[in-house]
Design a protein around this nucleic acid. Structure first.
Lengths: 119, 119
DNA sequence: TGACAAAGAGAAGATATCTTCCTATTCTTC
DNA sequence: GAAGAATAGGAAGATATCTTCTCTTTGTCA
């Protein structure tokens, strides 16, 4: 898709929003599976058919500095009898990027095109 | 299916055989996924479409005392970046049960039935 | 404006174990 | 020999993360 430097694709916006929302609701960090459910609810639920998409987006956000992550203590996961989780937190940079308006791509902001209405 | 006390179903026979075979080849213990591959090779490969079947069989064998198991050290699994394994070992009891001829069910051994040949 | 290259989206599958639900088969009992 | 109970088999999905492959879209440059 190739994006403009610093722009956020819709899925990334959703992740950051959901992450901040969860934090406000008392959960300081989230893991992929959890955010998948969150995003599925708030989104058209049509995104995220496969999970690979989500994990790639998480990885991108992290590499951009919008998220930071750490692995769950393996002993805790073992204790609860499930695979290990990776916990993500939205950084200040991420929050700023979101506030700056991340809704860039996919819906090309009409640039100087009088007439030619798309219904 | 309901089995005769102490009998082994074909899948269980395969598991025990594969387990012993792996031990002879230098692997003292095996985990579900590994045995799944082994069994798939030696079997018609038609068994074991879903893994649930295998794990239930492993559980049965363990409850019968034919296998014993222990969980892998969570730190090792974490270190290798994969889910934890559960390691099984064929017990002496299991080996004996196999030697005693586990091939009981499914192919009913003809018991006192002169005539009546099944082609 | 047209072509190319970069990168996101989505499907699929690997890694592991385990649960639930339904179907099919077998053993036992009458 | 028929009926009923018990249980194995198989499909599907939950729990988590991540990789690889192909398809599609978008930005940029000529």
């Amino acid at each position: 898709m190739r994006r403009k430097e610093g722009a956020l694709v819709p899925l990334e916006v959703s992740i950051l929003e959901a992450g901040i929302d969860l934090r406000l609701r008392g959960l300081p960090a989230f893991h992929g599976f959890l955010i998948a459910k969150e995003v599925k609810q708030r989104q058209d639920a049509r995104l995220l058919t496969a999970h690979g998409t989500l994990y790639k987006a998480l990885d991108r956000l992290q590499r951009s500095g919008f998220l930071e992550s750490e692995w769950e203590d393996p002993l805790v996961a073992a204790d609860e009898g499930r695979p290990r989780r990776r916990f993500y937190r939205v950084t200040a940079v991420g929050e700023a990027a979101l506030a700056r308006g991340g809704i860039i791509t996919t819906q090309p902001v009409p640039q100087h095109r009088p007439g030619l209405a798309t219904p």
